[in-house]
């Protein structure tokens, strides 16, 4: 039971990350490496604020903002200075590593003695029977809010333009709009969500670690692909719902593999192999950019 709960909890935290990466990877078709540093950026900002005695609730908008700035930076480097998409992300990712260290102050920060989203007066006041489920309920609420907001955004005029930019940049220009600006906006939104996920992860595990971002993009892409490919048959599901379920499903698979005796040493290897298999099986091996040309 506790294994199931922790799968759900972590799956939900990574669902926010996956929703962010869904914007860049699926909608904009942009391989955004910034993610590996914007995830710990959210965590670093959170660690700093919580240590400073600020309300855990305030960390949510703060990390969103920090991530948005990081994403916009990648966007500006790519769009205005014509640096290739992958490289632009790697440059910002590398630079942010130092920024994260500066923000957090140290490579490891423990928050065991502070209040967080999951450990505060409100949660302690809940009946004892509900308490074990408090984290999963709080997380479900946040993920639901993020998902609904994202669905709503994608139906707006700005959201339409975002989808069109990933689909057909020429059309965006003929609509008298600058596709470059839309890309910067998309990267900004995506990394805001990624940093939010990092913020929540930091409060959930109650420590910040500088290396907590390693492999974030791969994990997120795996969740996105599991969601959109495996649940492809269920037409009634919105893509955002599929991504959330994909994230939980993916976490479940990893937990299952570990409980069946997989050594944690092999975890990344298995992750990489699993992702490769999903990508090849799902026909994702070629970039889809020119598919419809």
């Amino acid at each position: 039971m506790s294994l199931l709960l922790s799968v759900l909890e972590q799956g939900l935290i990574y669902a926010i990350l996956a929703l962010g990466v869904y914007i860049t990877f699926k909608i904009l078709d942009f391989p955004d490496m910034t993610v590996d540093s914007s995830f710990p950026l959210g965590a670093a900002v959170t660690a700093l604020m919580i240590q400073g005695g600020l309300s855990p609730l305030l960390t949510l908008p703060a990390s969103l903002l920090a991530g948005a700035v990081a994403g916009a930076l990648t966007g500006v480097i790519h769009v205005r200075f014509h640096v290739r998409d992958l490289l632009a992300g790697i440059i910002v990712m590398t630079g942010l590593y130092s920024v994260n260290l500066h923000v957090a102050g140290r490579a490891n920060v423990q928050l065991f003695s502070f209040d967080t989203l999951f450990k505060n007066a409100f949660v302690s006041a809940l009946p004892a029977a509900v308490q074990p489920y408090a984290p999963v309920l709080i997380l479900a609420l946040i993920v639901l809010a993020v998902k609904l907001l994202m669905d709503a955004y994608l139906a707006t005029r700005s959201g339409f333009l975002l989808r069109a930019t990933g689909d057909n940049e020429t059309l965006v220009a003929t609509l008298a709009k600058d596709a470059g600006r839309v890309k910067i906006l998309g990267l900004s939104l995506a990394n805001a969500l990624v940093a939010l996920s990092g913020c929540i992860m930091c409060q959930y595990q109650r420590y910040f670690d500088i290396s907590m971002g390693t492999g974030t993009l791969v994990l997120a892409v795996a969740s996105v692909i599991v969601g959109t490919q495996l649940l492809r048959g269920m037409r009634f599901l919105r893509a955002t719902t599929a991504v959330v379920l994909g994230s939980i499903l993916y976490k479940g698979c990893v937990a299952l593999a570990l409980s069946l005796g997989l050594s944690p040493f092999d975890l990344k290897l298995v992750t990489a192999a699993l992702l490769l298999i999903i990508i090849i099986a799902g026909g994702h091996s070629r970039r889809r950019g020119k598919r419809h040309a």
């Binding site: 339409f160 689909d167 057909n168 965006v172 220009a173 003929t174 008298a176 600058d178 419809h292 040309a293």
Partner: peptide, 23 residues
């Protein structure tokens, strides 16, 4: 280019360029 399109409409030879396929 995008500013000029405020008063220009353009149709290309390739039908894929004038519409969004996933919408």
């Amino acid at each position: 280019e995008h500013r000029r399109h405020e008063r220009i409409g353009r149709v290309y030879q390739d039908p894929a360029r004038g519409t969004c396929p996933s919408m």
